[in-house]
């Protein structure tokens, strides 16, 4: 558990739209929130175009789930995360039903959805984790 909590885990909530494309709704980790401007810039650098906002400032579209996973992995590497957890609306709703405190909710979310490990993460040693900024 100690090991788990020292890892930098990023949570990404996504949703498909009617055409089958995917959008990122929100993205955060326990000590940071990635706002839409940050995701927009990352999307722009990855795809060479601005996200297509429909009703909300959500990031996307991603053609399919693989495309979304690629972007999520890129984001995880970009922010030096240890892993990124891709959550559906249902995953999030289920976790919310079972938890009424912030830390519990985040711990629960870490065990849901599809998780991508950033194996290239440098400095996996104890000291680098302690002194990570």
């Amino acid at each position: 558990m100690m090991e788990q909590e020292s890892l930098k885990v990023i949570f990404l909530i996504y949703s498909p739209d009617f055409s089958g494309s995917y959008y990122i709704l929100h993205c955060f980790e326990t000590e940071h929130f990635y706002d839409c401007e940050y995701l927009e810039n990352l999307y722009r650098s990855q795809y060479g175009k601005a996200p297509n906002f429909s009703k909300f400032p959500h990031t996307g579209p991603f053609e399919d789930f693989t495309d979304l996973k690629n972007f999520a992995f890129h984001l995880c590497k970009e922010v030096n995360g240890d892993r990124i957890v891709l959550l559906t609306l249902e995953d999030f709703q289920g976790a919310l039903d079972k938890n009424s405190q912030k830390p519990e909710l985040c711990r629960h979310l870490a065990g849901l959805g599809e998780s991508l490990e950033n194996l290239n993460q440098e400095g996996k040693g104890l000291f680098s984790k302690i002194f990570r900024t």
Partner: peptide, 10 residues
């Protein structure tokens, strides 16, 4: 947006 920002302790 604030909710998720607060989940991220921001």
């Amino acid at each position: 947006e604030d909710n998720f920002s607060r989940l991220g302790n921001q």
